[in-house]
Computed example of a mutant assay.
Amino acid sequence: MAKHKNEAGRISGHVELTRRKRGSQFYAKYRLADGRQVMKLLGPSWSGRGRPTVGYFTRKAAEQALQAILTDARRGQLPGSLTTGATFTDAAAEWLRYVEHDRKRRASTIEDYRNVVRNNLLPEFDEAPLEEITTEWIDGYRARLVAEGRLSDRTINKLLVLLHGIFRRAQRVYGLVANPVAAVDRQPVHRSGDFEVLTPGEVAALARAAESEQDAALFVTAAFTGLRLGELRVLRWTDVDFSKRLVHVRRAYTHGELGPPKSGRVRSVPLIDDVARVLDGLSRREHFTGSDQLVFPNPVGNPLDDSKLRRRFYRALERAGLKRIRFHDLRHSFGTLAVQVFPLSDVKAYMGHADIQTTMVYVHHVPAGDAAERLSGAVAGSGDFVAEGRPDSAAA
């Protein structure tokens, strides 16, 4: 029985052959630097002649496998070979601190992260030592969420992404050897490409049914500029350039916090005649027309309450006899119009998308209006596709 030791004599191990009814098995038995003893199954013993079948071990192969384990342990690269002394709760708190203060995520994003940790992750992993949270445990958690059916595949993937970030930070801060989330499969997610939009005529009907001139102007601006609600709530008159026919998107207001747009970048959007007309009307009101004042303020000049605005939006839809859609679908309405007029790269910039694939959904939703005509032209002249001298299939 060969033994292997490091110079300090703390990490050592040997190979054991255990005979069982179903055949002999090789085990690696070793002691880690912190004194823990581990016995790991290597695989069945090979007793035949010639090269062993894959998965079987000779004594020499078992010794080589043990040596590889001990080498990883001495380098600190063996999963579970080092104890961090940290729990999942510790790691989650450190990650939240890191993304808030170091990575400077938006306040609304941090609040979403905290809710996910508190409501989904802590109930599962809580005070478990980081080394005890294995890939098998996390994959079992994923499978259980899928079976319960409470969360969508997309939401489950978001949980896994967040978990991966927590453990990656733990590797850097606590010296955790491996990230157990790395080998967990994500759920397959396919965008349907289907969403609700309003036509320009329906946007006009919505505006006529609005409870105020300001609401009407806001609905029209949302549908024909693609601004998000948080961006509309803090749009200022200095952001509206009537001479250059542009709307500059410089900030957003979500969860009571003022910050940059979702993309983190300032962008500019074309100011079409219909939007310019309704905004020009608002600019002639008695109050709140200063360059640094809000275009769509509440009665005291502050950002509108988004919940109250949504309720007024739904009432206007009902009065106009329109289908019930989300306020965010006004942004989709702009996207479906824009892809019919502008290059895809321009639409991406106007909407503040980080990924062109996000913009592509509008191409799939609204193919070119002359697509059928152009395709017919490509096929025209190829021949007569009606069968001659054969009975109609229905008659047959």
Rank of each mutant, 00 (worst) to 15 (best):
L96V: 07
L96T: 01
R97T: 13
R97K: 15
Y98A: 01
Y98T: 00
V99E: 05
V99Q: 05
V99K: 06
H101K: 04
H101V: 04
H101F: 13
D102L: 02
R103N: 02
R103G: 00
K104P: 00
K104I: 03
K104Q: 11
K104A: 06
R105I: 14
R105L: 15
R106H: 13
R106N: 07
R106C: 10
A107N: 06
A107P: 14
A107D: 15
A107Q: 11
A107E: 15
S108D: 13
S108M: 07
S108T: 14
T109Y: 07
T109F: 00
I110T: 04
E111W: 03
E111V: 06
D112R: 15
D112E: 15
Y113C: 01
Y113E: 04
Y113W: 02
Y113I: 02
Y113M: 01
R114T: 06
R114H: 03
R114C: 05
N115D: 08
N115I: 08
V116I: 15
V117W: 01
V117R: 00
V117N: 03
V117F: 02
V117I: 15
R118D: 15
N119K: 11
N119I: 04
N119L: 11
N119S: 10
N120T: 10
N120S: 14
L121T: 03
L121I: 11
L121D: 04
L121C: 07
L121Q: 09
L121N: 03
P123Q: 09
P123G: 09
F125E: 06
F125N: 04
F125K: 07
D126T: 09
D126R: 13
E127L: 13
E127Q: 14
E127T: 14
A128I: 09
A128L: 14
L130Y: 06
L130F: 05
E131Q: 08
E132M: 08
E132H: 11
E132I: 05
I133D: 03
T134L: 01
T134Y: 03
T134I: 03
T135L: 03
E136W: 09
E136H: 11
W137C: 07
W137K: 14
I138A: 08
D139R: 15
D139T: 12
D139E: 14
Y141E: 12
Y141R: 12
R142S: 08
A143L: 06
A143C: 04
A143V: 07
A143T: 05
R144Q: 13
R144A: 14
